[in-house]
Design a protein around this nucleic acid. Structure first.
Lengths: 228, 228
DNA sequence: CTATGATTCAAACGAACGTATGAATTATAG
DNA sequence: CTATAATTCATACGTTCGTTTGAATCATAG
């Protein structure tokens, strides 16, 4: 069985697809763009992956499998060290979001390209993509949610779930890239941040997330005891 | 000049486009879907708007013109009342994000449909959309940024800009809709929140945003005085 | 070396896309 | 009523899309 060529072809396609999906979105990227950038024949995608949808799923699976495992490993390690005592919220947030953000430095795992793709895809309108991602994330997110419940026993669970959601949004935006960032700034300020974008982004985002997670509980206009 | 028919047609097209762009994205929505849902002829879009791109821009302009004016009006009013004294961050945040979120109740202004469209579009990969939105937002965002600089004189400007960006992300996610929300929860908790989703979402999000905005400043690993 | 299965390739498929056209229809002005 | 401009309509154009096909090329096993 020939292996050398095909493994190479598969990987080249995945790399090109990852980059182009990030830059132009799923619907905005054609098979011809992908195979052209990968330097392979047009039919190669359908031969190796079956369809464009399956290719998209494989692009994510290649990265998320590792991320999910790593997140699980980190949380298990934290809980082992804590020996039964509840974790600090900052540890949990770092385990989930910090682990993600540190992928940006790891070119082997897709680096910034994959992070930006992920950030943009989480709000992608395509039904099959959201369904796929929700399924990929379900188990890990559930474990982290439970950890937060234990770490913040005085905060209603519904509140924690919402704040988890808000944290995902802030993070998604942060990694979706500097293009959307033009919304907020014309960069009259941060020329000095050209290189250090990342090692500064992480602590910046972490401060913000933790501040939001530990904010005072909201007061609803209708006075209802919102416990549990 | 005939006006009755064409005004109706224009509006019907805009409504259908708003809904379909929200549900399936810009690239994922065809002219035939739009004209079919609007109950008008296929050629009507090109006749009234020129092209699909122009239609997309008009969909946003119809809503954002009002939103921008309202945000300006609110901020001017706040500054008038304050009479020179710096505003409270909570006032500024409510002026920018609260004004946006309250559109959800206003069906005349697009309601939840437009909010979800906006939330999803802010991370849309299409170049011309991001460029257009950045241009539409520029002036207002700049005024609110300046207001935050004055309200938080001890916080470095770069930090405020970043946190503004994070707040946009969290808000975008919150309004992008309950579909993406499945990522975080299977709704084992919040059956009771079916109706009140919105009058509870606003205070919830506001608490989170303010907590993040006022969080302790991050400590960078390389010790550099990050003033200015 | 030959046979076999895996992979690559050029070419084509039908479908769907955004847009353009010119005639038919409708509303307004004189 | 008639003339004129605005709008609607059915239809078609040229592209591009994702996918398929069958032959050509390659690597490996016997």
């Amino acid at each position: 069985m020939a292996e050398v060529r095909s493994v190479d072809t598969r990987e080249r396609i995945l790399d090109a697809a990852e980059h182009l999906f990030m830059a132009h979105g799923y619907e905005g990227t054609s098979m011809r763009q992908i195979t052209s950038e990968a330097g392979v024949n047009l039919a190669a995608v359908n031969y190796h992956f079956g369809s464009k949808e399956s290719l998209m799923q494989e692009v994510f699976r290649r990265r998320l499998d590792w991320l999910n495992e790593e997140r699980m490993r980190v949380l298990n390690e934290l809980e082992r060290e804590a020996a039964g005592k509840p974790l600090k919220p900052s540890q949990i947030v770092d385990g989930f979001f910090g682990t993600l953000l540190r992928m940006a430095d790891d070119e082997e795992r897709g680096g910034k390209t994959f992070l930006r793709l992920l950030g943009r895809t989480l709000t992608d309108p395509s039904e099959f993509i959201r369904t796929f991602l929700a399924h990929e994330y379900a188990v890990v997110v559930d474990r982290y949610k439970e950890a937060l419940f234990c770490a913040l026993p005085d905060v209603p669970k519904a509140e924690i779930v919402w704040r988890f959601h808000f944290m995902l949004g802030a993070t998604s935006y942060a990694i979706a890239g500097t293009d959307a960032l033009r919304l907020v700034t014309d960069w009259q300020i941060e020329e000095e941040d050209a290189i250090d974008r990342l090692d500064r982004l992480v602590p910046r985002l972490m401060s913000f997330l933790l501040g939001g997670l530990r904010a005072p509980l909201p007061q609803f206009s209708d006075a209802v005891a919102d416990s549990k």
